[in-house]
């Protein structure tokens, strides 16, 4: 007759054998119950370039950390994009509240390789999940969010002819879904977002321009395949406005591979194709991004 062998009995033998192991085990277990750990591995997603929970360049409907509806989370991220004529750094932090609300801050520095100058902006993000769960609900998980951006110095934005060289706000709605075992047994993830924006190059070149100074809706999407419990590969596309008359702005895309060893850390390497940025044509390069989950 099979009987339960309880944890208490196990702990006792551990205690006899090795006190240290028991203490370490205790802290691991207690630690886990406080921090946001309630989502399945990989389902917290990554941090996108503007600090919101997402993919790499597209915000997703996911709330940034591993918090379930009874937990909270805190994560930090750092992203570097090495383009032909620029280097973009983005770093920041995000808090997830009960898998319902996400509050994020990101700081972007765009280094202009030629002039040695720098464009900096702050991005304050707020997102809330309206419906669903990307794994368990039949329909996709749906969230709405805002990204409020303020330029530290609007000089370059003025030079390229932005109507507003100070600040702007993007509004988006995102739908994300994981289909378990859907692609030959592999899990498949897709995300579709619509963003109302006036931003030129994420806002780094200000808002609005001579060609257009109204909000426009841009479509952004990601697809990915979860190759294992720890690896995801995928592709993203982000439609961009083209407001400025002097310089062209192109749609962005990237191909990414992400390694997610555990619920504390993930690392993404991507190849980005960002097109023309200001006076530099056809910008391509590597994108490296890491997110650490502190809580």
């Amino acid at each position: 007759m099979r009987k339960w062998v309880g944890v208490k009995t196990m702990c006792k033998c551990l205690l006899n054998k090795n006190l240290l192991v028991t203490i370490v085990l205790y802290f691991l277990l207690v630690g886990q119950s406080i921090a946001g750990q309630g989502k399945l591995l990989e389902t917290a997603g990554l941090t996108q370039i503007e600090g919101s929970g997402g993919g790499g360049i597209v915000p997703w409907a996911t709330i940034s950390g591993y918090d379930s509806r009874d937990e909270m989370s805190l994560s930090v991220f750092n992203t570097l994009v090495f383009l032909d004529d620029y280097r973009l750094q983005s770093w920041g932090a995000s808090a997830g509240l009960f898998d319902r609300v996400e509050m994020s801050y990101a700081r972007q520095n765009l280094h202009l390789s030629a002039s040695g100058g720098e464009i900096r902006q702050n991005i304050y993000g707020l997102k809330t999940r309206l419906y669903g769960d990307l794994i368990y609900s039949v329909l996709p998980q749906i969230s709405v969010g805002v990204q409020h951006k303020t330029l530290v110095d609007g000089a370059v934005a003025s030079t390229v002819g932005a109507k507003n060289n100070n600040s702007g706000t993007d509004f988006y709605v995102a739908a994300t879904k994981v289909h378990l075992g859907a692609v030959g047994g592999y899990n498949f993830i897709w995300n579709l977002a619509a963003r109302a924006t006036k931003a030129n190059q994420l806002g780094l070149l200000g808002y609005g321009g001579a060609k257009n100074n109204d909000y426009q809706v841009m479509v952004e999407g990601s697809v990915g395949v979860l190759l294992s419990r720890n690896w995801v590969i995928g592709f993203e596309y982000r439609q961009k406005p083209n407001n400025l008359s002097g310089v062209k702005e192109d749609d962005w895309r990237d191909f990414f591979a992400t390694y997610i060893p555990n619920k504390h850390f993930n690392l993404t390497l991507a190849w980005t194709q960002l097109g023309d940025i200001a006076d530099a044509g056809n910008q391509q390069g590597f994108y490296v991004s890491a997110t650490g989950y502190l809580w």
Partner: peptide, 27 residues
């Protein structure tokens, strides 16, 4: 809780790993 449910899922994944069930069948 949602969290404990997912914890249960992780245990099921462990159980399938130990039984040598391939990732694609697990999904």
């Amino acid at each position: 809780t949602e969290s404990d449910f997912n914890r249960g899922v992780d245990l099921l994944i462990n159980a399938m790993n130990t039984a040598d069930i391939p990732y694609r069948v697990q999904n």
